[in-house]
Computed example of a mutant assay.
Amino acid sequence: MLSEQSAATVRATLPVVGAAIGEITERFYAGLFAAHPELLRDLFNRGNQAAGTQRQALAGSVAAFATHLVDHPDQRPDAMLSRIAHKHASLGVTPAQYQVVHEHLFAAIVDVLGEAVTPEVAAAWDEVYWLMANALIAVEKRLYEESGGHGWREWEVVERVAETGDVASFRLRPVDGGPVRDFRAGQYVSVRVELPDGARQIRQYSLSGAPGSALRQISVKRVSGDAGGATPEGEVSHHLHARVREGDVLELSEPYGDLVLDDVTDTPLLLASAGIGVTPMTAMLAQLAETGHRAPVTVVHGDRSPADHALRADHEAYAAKLPDAAVHFWYEAQAPAGARSGLVDLSGIVVPSGTRAYLCGPLPFMRAVRTQLIEKGVAPADIHYEVFGPDLWLASQG
């Protein structure tokens, strides 16, 4: 891994780089997009750039990777790298783009830190960058080989279903009529659309239907911006809601994502979601019902109200097919009989020993659930999560 000389230099300079990483990533993206405007137009999420969340995610991942290298020189943070690599593969990121990123990232480092970037410091952080980049390139190469190579495929919308006032499901089949690779419950696809200004923006949506079908199903929440601009309006989600109907064609990637059920035949599970985080959980429940999972399954979901609970019928129906499932729903308003009022609270929920947990929803929700699960004795290594959008979990740990 990291050489001893570079490790000492990185350890000594990590506080300085960490303190400036936000400014470095801001300068980096400004320089990158000035030189390559097509990347902002057709690859990067313009909403996340406007909100600054992509900068936070990049800063968090770089700092976390460097810290891991100096604290655990004989280990590699494979879980973090896998999550990033799956997202990159869904976008079609290529090895050549890592050189472009390197050029502009190091220009930003020198620009911000100035004379502090001695040849020794530059060499050490260059080693960090290429350790991370080459590890990602290797994982992405394997993912491309497993999926048959990255390419955009046209899919026709055969049905559109209004799940709630702001969530719609789109069921799709390949335009070419060719075979469909199966996916693993919990995975997502990238969807690329052309917007009115000519930009071809890409977003990831979990596959919310059951595995094994010749159709793909995505369930899309319309993202509305707030008055202060902290959350920009979702360009692609609004496009899909306003413009895409039965008979229209979308471009999809192959399925990617590492929040999947592995070797869980005899394992107690807890599937916890909030809001649109329900989408991968319904696919997981469908798979568990299909395979006849017999160990306990605890289903947890929180939402604003029953009317806002997308895929609620599927959520309940798949859980009902399991021989040992407990379903717990929380609603902030209008909770019906059998459900709980307020936010998700696991204090009164029995969590079997040896439970493996899967979480999907807003970060505050997942942090709270993770904390409660650990207090109940669930091992941190057995708690897995999915973040929609830039992964700010790492950034929030700095």
Results as ranks from 00 to 15, higher is better:
residue 232 P to G: 10
residue 192 R to I: 01
residue 246 E to S: 09
residue 204 Q to S: 11
residue 237 S to G: 03
residue 156 E to T: 11
residue 142 R to T: 14
residue 175 V to T: 13
residue 165 G to S: 06
residue 143 L to M: 10
residue 136 L to Q: 14
residue 193 V to W: 03
residue 206 S to E: 07
residue 224 S to V: 14
residue 172 L to D: 12
residue 238 H to Q: 15
residue 165 G to M: 04
residue 230 A to G: 09
residue 127 E to W: 04
residue 121 V to K: 14
residue 170 F to Q: 08
residue 164 T to I: 04
residue 198 G to I: 10
residue 142 R to Q: 15
residue 218 I to P: 00
residue 176 D to Q: 09
residue 245 R to T: 14
residue 234 G to T: 01
residue 212 G to C: 05
residue 249 V to H: 08
residue 200 R to C: 07
residue 237 S to C: 01
residue 210 A to I: 01
residue 192 R to V: 10
residue 152 W to S: 09
residue 190 S to M: 01
residue 234 G to R: 06
residue 152 W to L: 15
residue 210 A to W: 02
residue 166 D to N: 10
residue 180 V to R: 12
residue 215 L to I: 02
residue 226 D to W: 07
residue 224 S to K: 13
residue 152 W to T: 07
residue 216 R to V: 01
residue 236 V to H: 07
residue 138 A to I: 00
residue 187 Q to K: 06
residue 166 D to K: 06
residue 134 N to H: 15
residue 145 E to Y: 01
residue 240 L to C: 01
residue 244 V to E: 11
residue 162 A to Y: 03
residue 151 G to E: 12
residue 177 G to Q: 05
residue 176 D to W: 05
residue 174 P to W: 11
residue 123 A to L: 08
residue 244 V to P: 03
residue 247 G to Q: 10
residue 224 S to R: 14
residue 138 A to D: 15
residue 121 V to R: 13
residue 125 W to M: 04
residue 229 G to Q: 09
residue 140 E to Q: 11
residue 122 A to M: 14
residue 173 R to L: 14
residue 233 E to W: 00
residue 143 L to I: 04
residue 222 R to V: 01
residue 240 L to R: 02
residue 149 G to E: 14
residue 190 S to V: 01
residue 211 P to G: 11
residue 142 R to N: 15
residue 226 D to S: 13
residue 185 A to Y: 04
residue 121 V to D: 09
residue 228 G to F: 06
residue 153 R to A: 12
residue 232 P to Q: 11
residue 184 R to K: 13
residue 136 L to D: 05
residue 121 V to Q: 13
residue 179 P to D: 11
residue 148 G to V: 05
residue 124 A to V: 00
residue 134 N to G: 08
residue 128 V to L: 13
residue 129 Y to C: 08
residue 210 A to M: 04
residue 178 G to A: 10
residue 149 G to W: 07
residue 135 A to S: 15
residue 232 P to N: 11
residue 210 A to K: 06
residue 213 S to V: 05
residue 135 A to K: 12
residue 194 E to C: 03
residue 150 H to K: 08
residue 135 A to D: 12
residue 163 E to G: 03
residue 232 P to V: 09
residue 201 Q to V: 02
residue 157 V to P: 04
residue 142 R to G: 15
residue 130 W to R: 10
residue 126 D to L: 05
residue 184 R to E: 12
residue 235 E to P: 00
residue 122 A to C: 00
residue 177 G to K: 08
residue 166 D to H: 05
residue 226 D to A: 09
residue 188 Y to P: 00
residue 219 S to P: 00
residue 156 E to A: 14
residue 233 E to R: 14
residue 189 V to K: 07
residue 132 M to P: 00
residue 231 T to L: 15
residue 136 L to A: 11
residue 233 E to C: 10
residue 165 G to T: 09
residue 170 F to D: 08
residue 238 H to V: 11
residue 129 Y to D: 04
residue 140 E to D: 04
residue 220 V to L: 07
residue 207 L to F: 06
residue 146 E to N: 10
residue 141 K to L: 09
residue 240 L to V: 02
residue 206 S to V: 02
residue 195 L to P: 00
residue 191 V to I: 13
residue 142 R to W: 06
residue 182 D to A: 14
residue 236 V to T: 05
residue 243 R to K: 10
residue 185 A to D: 03
residue 154 E to G: 02
